[in-house]
Nucleic acid binder design. Structure first.
Lengths: 369, 369
DNA sequence: CAATTTTTTGGAAACGCTTCCATTGAATAA
DNA sequence: TTATTCAATGGAAGCGTTTCCAAAAAATTG
């Protein structure tokens, strides 16, 4: 009799020790779980889950009790466990080339604004070379980290696009196009057309074009679109466009400067330069300054994009609706997530011509040789 | 006999139907799991797991076989399930106020570079008001979505800091300080001191200061630090600093412009203006242009931060090591994740004075009334 | 009041992985 | 040959949720 009592006590003591141990080991790392809440509130885990998710069919009194317990225990559901079952992560991914470039940042502004509205997290997949892009394109369809993907300014092959589709990952393309995915494109042909048309209307006849190169294979259509628009404008005026007036270089300041230098050192110097991006236009301005050429008196400069810098420096430009591209992209993406059977759409956005201080009619005394 | 055969066939057929059904229903959504691989490779799931994680103790031949199966089935482990157990998510979070502002973008450049090196994903928590900040500070410790947190330019209360610590979430602070967390701070007092000292050395005696306001309660020390540095410089020169030479306004272009307008319309106009940020300095430049005041002949302008725009516009400024702040922040964070018992450190970074085209010695014929 | 319907509730199963222990097979020692 | 050791392997348990079904409780009906 005594013996059995002692044995029970020993048992209890042992269990106590173990619990102490577990407790200590777990402390600080282990958060309260749904089971803790259920136990404390004296209900089942199902009920707690229903309360957390605001499901109907819980008696108000019970809901109260659970809510109180949750608050008291400072319980936060584990997002991972939650996503694992529900297949929803409450965060969306954005694949973006060189995400710190002004143009992309501007789009991200729109993205962020829209995401904040719907209260979702933002995961950024930065791409700075072809490998990384392909890596993401092949990896991301299977990743279960994001509910949807916004791809900015990155062309995607049909194979990859179909992969995404097949894997059930919602994708929206911005500033790029695929027949398999909802795409938001900007009519850059028309944008470029208007830029050059404006220059021609101002009376310029000798117009240089600083185009961007196709880096890796990013932005492949961008350079083309610009060129097509330019040709169309010249065509409208019944004017020929000399191919040697095009210089192609990096999509940045230095690229613009170098290209402009080439153009401006020719004996037959252009009276206007159209740059494929604002950053290149900044480079053109630098080149002009270096050669002591007055802008806009001796040289008109036209940019493209409409990033903030163009405003600061007073560069005339073609404004792309960058913010809107980002925000509409996200809202389209969310539409598609909520209704996965929706068919791909093609949305077109337009550009705006903004004239500032770098463009003017050409001077009478031109620098023709 | 016949009957039993038929019954078996029926059974088979039924199972076949079910499998078909499951297959169809799952197609496109359900990825291959570790079990599929194990079955196909004719090994146990444990072995597959060991192969995936590059654990030792798998016979080379077996490893080969599993690897081949993985490739053939195009199997990618489910990151969520994996993180749930291992408590590692392979992504880190960055809490940043107004992440599209140039200064923050610059830091994010460094962040991204470092993150790419260690191959981790980037989750951005953008903060644009106090509520959101507090929300993140109280929510994020329990979130299991990220392995660590980098907090940029955001002051954090001791309570929150301790919460993070206690929850076992690694945190590094950049451009902000807490005794409980590893912090990377920039010595902005000295930076500001050098800016003003430079102006004084150039001979300026009437110096206006465009300071930034404390938005919400972000950046609270920034404005102070600038002011302290300024006072110190004046002190060094044994000169008094008139409080009315300070105008405080938003940390942006418009804020700078408005503040400068006030300063420049005074009868006793300053010969130099020091702005607490480059964007404000841009505003100062705009104000000067509006009032037809030549820079730097009639007015010297000094910025602070060293964002790209300051280079484009040729603004003299105090360069903060933004890139480094981001990258060092991440590497510190990773150090801490790998060695959680590491004690908090305080790392100090320095600024550099960069003189460009907006500063000069004051003209003899000053505009004193 | 009993029978029936409806509302609440509890908790097992499942999600896809890692961890860990038991088991197998091979290699070595006696 | 048999006993002993060690490397390789299989798979159950468990992570913290949601989902779903059966059971209990409450409300309604005749």
């Amino acid at each position: 009799m005594l013996c059995s009592t002692i044995s029970v006590l020993l048992d209890l003591w042992k269990r106590f020790q173990t619990e102490q141990f577990n407790w200590k080991q777990r402390r600080g790392k282990m958060a309260t779980t749904i089971h803790d809440v259920a136990r404390a509130a004296e209900v089942g885990i199902g009920t707690v889950s229903r309360v957390i998710n605001n499901y109907p069919g819980v008696k108000p009194a019970t809901r109260e009790k659970v809510l109180a317990t949750i608050a008291q225990l400072n319980y936060k559901p584990n997002a991972l466990a939650r996503s694992m079952i529900s297949k929803r992560t409450n965060s969306i991914g954005v694949v973006v080339p060189f995400f710190t470039r002004p143009f992309n940042i501007e789009m991200l502004r729109g993205v962020e604004a829209e995401l904040a509205r719907v209260n979702k997290d933002l995961v950024i997949y930065n791409v700075d070379n072809d490998n990384k892009r392909d890596h993401y394109f092949s990896e991301l369809p299977m990743r279960d980290r994001v509910d949807g993907l916004l791809i900015l300014s990155l062309p995607i092959s049909d194979t990859y696009a179909q992969n995404f589709k097949q894997a059930g990952m919602q994708v929206v393309l911005v500033d790029s196009y695929s027949p398999y995915l909802t795409s938001l494109v900007v009519d850059n042909v028309t944008g470029s057309y208007h830029a050059v048309k404006f220059l021609l209307e101002q009376g310029h006849r000798s117009i240089g074009f600083v185009n961007g190169i196709t880096e890796g294979s990013f932005k492949f259509n961008q350079a083309n679109d610009r060129l097509i628009g330019l040709h169309r404008a010249f065509g409208d005026f019944g004017l020929p466009f000399e191919p040697e007036m095009v210089v192609t270089n990096e999509w940045n300041r230095q690229g613009g400067r170098e290209a402009a230098l080439k153009l401006l050192k020719r004996s037959y110097r252009p009276t206007a330069i159209f740059a494929a991006s604002d950053m290149q236009a900044v480079g053109v301005l630098e080149a002009a300054r270096a050669l002591d050429i007055q802008v806009p008196e001796e040289l008109s400069v036209m940019g493209y994009d409409g990033i903030e810098v163009s405003e600061l420096l007073g560069i005339s430009t073609i404004q792309q609706p960058m913010r809107q591209m980002g925000s509409s992209g996200i809202s389209k993406l969310i539409e598609h997530s909520e209704n996965p059977s929706k068919l791909p759409e093609l949305i077109r956005l337009d550009t705006t011509l903004i004239t500032r201080r770098t463009t003017a009619k050409p001077c009478a005394k031109d620098h023709h040789s």
